[in-house]
Amino acid sequence: MRAISHPRHPFRLSSHYGLLILLSLLVLGPLLYLLAQIFMTPDEASQYPPKLLPSSFYMGELKNAIDTVPIFGFIINSFVLATAIMVLQVLTAALAAYAFVYIRFSGSRFWFALFISTMMIPWEVTIIPNYLTIKGWGWLDSFQGLIVPFAASAFGVFLLRQFYMQLPRELFEAARVDGCGHFRHFVSIVLPLSGPAGASLAVYVFLNGWNQYLWPLLVTSSDAMRTVQIGIAMLQFEELTSWNLVLCGVALVLVPSFVLLALGLKPLVRGITAGAVKG
């Protein structure tokens, strides 16, 4: 099957690959630039005309970035934030999705429609009152303030509901006959079975949390609470003299994302495509 779809003509074949290589260079270009910069000495990095490649794998600037900038503090903050949001969102979504699929209660259709309708509210529209709420509770510059507003998402409920509806109904009936209540059914059967969909949601939510920008910008003010995205942007204004120090920081922030992408591309894609084909 694949053989047929191959462009067979040698000229076509090479133009096909030529275009692919050109496009990948466009995508990779800035990243390759970043990669070259982090191994340069400050002198090399500030040369003009700019050097394309470092003369050696100099690690001094990376070390320097780690030493002079509270980058690890930022990374830990973002890690705590993204992990907490991930765990909470998967849990609340699993509970709600379970209710929509397995529990018969009046108004369930209404609540589901209401949940889905929240996807229509852009987060930016609610940001002013949310800021005032968090401020009123004294939660500015704290983990609660960063995490709690994102503890639930309609997208997660929707994704897991779609998944639960595909689970064999007999499992549920059998558990009921065995006298297994909803809580036990949820904890011992449905939750362990939500692996694939749960993983998709988890990777997606974690990356979103790691990449958050506007909300942490508003609610954090001290260096101790800054997240990576904000911290890295601040760095750039303070240390304008040494670019590759800033770029070393950028690289350090990107490492966890790339690792997660390499490990979790499959579930991530599954999650994204599941969201795309709304039933």
Partner: peptide, 18 residues
């Protein structure tokens, strides 16, 4: 893999780089 790489980028890191 190359074309999927930008999924890992965030607005903070990408903006500084550019």
């Amino acid at each position: 893999f190359i074309f999927s790489l930008p999924l890992a980028l965030s607005v903070g890191t990408a903006s500084i780089l550019w």
